[in-house]
Amino acid sequence: MLSTRHGVRVLGPTDLAAFLDLTGRDPVVNVFADYRARTTNLEPRWLGGEVWGRFRDGELVAACHLGANLVMVEATDEDARVFAERALTRRRSVSTIYGLQAPVRAFWDVVATGWGRPREARWCQPHLEIAGEPAVAPDPRVRRTTRDDLDVLFPACVAMHTEEVGVPPDQGGGADLYRTRVSQLISLGWSFARFEDDRVVFKAEVAYASPHAAQVQGVWVPPDLRGQGLAAAGMAAVVEQVRRDIAPVVSLYVNGYNTPARAAYARVGFRETATFATIMF
């Protein structure tokens, strides 16, 4: 049922076409929501949460994915505030809020006092895209990983996640769940790495993909090997393989303060198209 005040309701399978039209307004920025819709059909039991839609004159104009991740789609600041007011009627269940900086900030301004202090807020995360050939030579030793690689790859994934997020993904009994996620990405053909002497020297994964775009995450080089060009050449190889086999545009977002990573992506040919923000609990 529509909220009589704000025109907001929970979306379901009958809304899928309208929702995909909405994500299609910027299919690269909205790749997470597009992927989630296509893989769950907007069925709450598969979403593990809900997707809210805001309607104006019968047309879906904005949406909010509310699961482990809270991500808004084509939301203005006003839409974000409306979603936030609705979110305040329930206990916080999300672990991360992320997306375009402006609506994330507008949402947070409303829920901040009710949802508690976040563990960290990253307000400047350039969103990058590449839709052509990489500008540097791809590393020919970067390849798709296989299940045989899992025992070597998993510690590198844990190290990357701990360094990036600040919390080990395998703590508190989470090791099996995280290992399952790494295995899933391998099975999908979304995990890429270069190995030397049973050691990962570069790795990256596709986190989400649609017919329009793929979003890369987990880019990592061991600390003692950084500054040698492994990241740029490795990402060039990932871009080449992803554009060939998965989606025509490759995207990612990076912390604004991570100057070496931003320089590596620029060398590959990524261009900045937006600014994201992430709030972590």
Rank of each mutant, 00 (worst) to 15 (best):
G7I: 04
V8S: 07
V10T: 14
D15P: 05
D15Y: 02
A17F: 00
A17I: 07
A17L: 13
A18G: 14
T23Q: 01
G24W: 06
G24E: 04
R25H: 10
R25E: 11
V28W: 07
V29S: 03
V29W: 09
V29L: 14
F32D: 07
F32E: 11
Y35T: 14
T39F: 02
L42R: 10
R45S: 15
W46N: 10
G48A: 05
G48Y: 00
W52Q: 04
F55P: 07
G58P: 10
L60K: 11
A63V: 05
C64T: 01
A68W: 12
N69S: 14
A75T: 12
A75I: 11
D79Y: 03
R81E: 11
R81P: 01
V82P: 02
A84I: 04
R86W: 13
T89E: 15
S93Q: 13
T96L: 13
L100T: 14
V104L: 01
V104S: 07
R105S: 10
F107D: 05
G114W: 07
G116K: 08
R117G: 05
A121W: 01
H127N: 11
A135I: 02
A135M: 08
A135W: 00
A137T: 15
P138W: 06
T146A: 12
D148C: 03
V152E: 05
P155N: 11
C157G: 08
A159C: 00
E163H: 08
P168T: 05
D170P: 01
T180K: 12
V182P: 00
Q184W: 08
I186D: 04
E196Y: 00
D197S: 13
V200F: 05
V201M: 05
A207Q: 14
Y208A: 15
Y208S: 13
A209K: 07
P211L: 09
A213Q: 10
A214W: 09
Q215D: 08
Q215K: 12
V216W: 02
Q217W: 06
P222A: 07
P222L: 06
G227S: 08
A231I: 00
A233T: 10
A236I: 03
A237E: 06
A237S: 12
V239E: 01
V239Q: 07
Q241P: 08
Q241K: 11
R244G: 07
R244H: 09
D245Y: 04
D245R: 14
I246P: 02
A247F: 00
V249W: 00
S251F: 00
Y253P: 04
Y257W: 14
N258E: 06
T259H: 11
Y265D: 06
Y265S: 12
T278F: 00
M280N: 10
